[in-house]
Design a binder for these strands. Structure first.
Lengths: 279, 279
DNA sequence: CAAAAAAGTGAAAAAAATTTTCATTTTTCA
DNA sequence: TGAAAAATGAAAATTTTTTTCACTTTTTTG
């Protein structure tokens, strides 16, 4: 139920018999009205066009058209990704997985904290050394991030092996940064390494999909990618993509920041861009 | 910029002079259009009603009314200027990179051939052995694909090292499949391995962003991800994402196909799904 | 390079949707 | 009960949208 219909509920007692019919229909079919013309709606409600216009004006709209636009603006997006079926060909599945990815990115826009991103960026920029740790798919993301951070001028390394991770974090000091990447946030070895890093005074940043997870508790800065996996992609694909983009945005900002001076002295956008090329 | 207008940006080149005027006006006044009637808008754009209806239909709407409703539904979304500037904070950059990714996926939907995807899927399903080769970022994709194919029941391996790649492809026989992954399509070692695989009678599949590239010429089946990189993400990020999704869709179809029998005997959707979990 | 074909365009007609008007019905209240 | 006020819906008036079609521009082809 959206704002306009709540308003209608408040005014319900002031309405006449016929206007109430319109309100009732809208309460039980709030999502369906947009494609209907005023004539369609009048017959659905067993009411008349004039009544619908009056109803619209009561709610502060200029008329039925305006009401529809108002409702559309408040329309909560319940984009339901179509379900993949056995009859779909590869391409149809590709399209559906793409849709899933869009939705996942939209969700990530909501879960990700702008402030934490900025804090992470600053911590990384100032760090003497940045260590990235992750396992499985997350190791790939760590590797990718490390490559990009190197290009951005940070002293970073990624470790995909738990032993190497343990060694690397034990060398960290205050002012250093460790970035732990874990989809579930509960990979035991990763959490353990985060603890050690913290004990040595390093700033701990975690990239995970679960807000209440062991890794989150060991983190000074938490970067949350989308929380909810959908049906149509491998578990982890969507957060993998979110994390790749998150890393890319961070590195972009770091490059921009580091090169602000050089840039202001006349370095071209193209040169700036060239520092980011990875493949 | 919302989804519909991003779509318009993708289709911009296909529009005529007058339709472009409509698009231009909307790009610079995207928030203002809702109260305008088609006649108002036509005069604002120095265009005609008919052109606006055509423009609306191009974007998949039934007409101007429908376009307005669609825009109204997307109304709440923030308008993100397409160019990243030094003043953007990390989060704003993240949003822009997401938009880029979105546009890149839309482009990939155009370049990717549905038929070739199906042919690739069939070749992989029937193959005695699948070898994946790639370097750099593409090696990560190859690794990811190999993991998923294994889960899907294919005998697959990925090689990130050129020597290992050379050895692996020399063992292939007719009926085997090699999948070469290369952003530019011209990594010398990869192309060479594709040639060898082909000489041994294996089916060659390539995943690349360049249609006219050496690797494409060595391929029986060509899978083209988006061709044009944009300004806002690292060179390669967008095609990396496209390829991850492409792989995921392929594997999804393979799992569905392989398990069709088991499924029909009563295996649940959940069990089917569980075979795809990677992390 | 010119002719033919295709694509794009906008004025105006046609259709549809919306809003207003007004006669009639229903409700309110003394 | 009956007069005034409020509510209603059919139909008219208006506005908006969509379609049509003749004309223009662009592209292709011989």
């Amino acid at each position: 139920m959206n704002r306009t219909l709540l308003q209608a509920q408040l005014m319900y007692d002031d309405m006449g018999r016929s206007e109430k019919k319109v309100a009732d229909w809208l309460f039980s079919h709030s999502g369906e009205v947009l494609p209907y013309s005023i004539t369609d709606l009048a017959s659905k409600c067993e009411s008349s066009e004039a009544t619908i216009v009056r109803f619209s004006k009561r709610l502060g709209c200029r008329g039925y058209q305006d009401l529809k636009l108002t409702l559309a603006k408040e329309h909560e997006k319940k984009v339901v990704a179509p379900v993949i079926t056995g009859n779909d060909d590869c391409f149809a599945i590709f399209e559906k997985v793409c849709n899933d990815a869009y939705m996942s990115l939209e969700r990530t826009k909501k879960t990700l904290s702008a402030e934490n991103m900025s804090r992470a960026m600053e911590a990384i920029t100032k760090a003497r050394r940045v260590v990235l740790i992750g396992l499985g798919t997350s190791a790939q993301v760590a590797e990718d991030a490390s490559n990009k951070l190197l290009r951005a001028g940070c002293n970073s390394s990624a470790y995909a092996d738990t032993h190497m991770q343990a060694i690397a974090v034990s060398q960290l000091k205050a002012g250093d940064v460790v970035i732990g990447i874990s989809q579930s946030g509960s990979s035991k070895d990763i959490v353990e390494s985060m603890k050690v890093a913290r004990a040595h005074g390093a700033t701990t940043i975690s990239i995970t999909s679960r807000e209440r997870s062991p890794i989150a508790r060991q983190s000074d800065i938490l970067l949350l990618t989308d929380t909810e996996e959908t049906m149509h992609s491998s578990l982890g694909l969507n957060s993998h993509i979110s994390r790749l983009i998150l890393i890319d945005a961070l590195c972009y900002k770091i490059v921009y920041q580091n090169d602000a001076l050089a840039h202001s002295v006349g370095e071209s956008e193209a040169e700036l861009q060239s520092k980011r090329i990875v493949e």
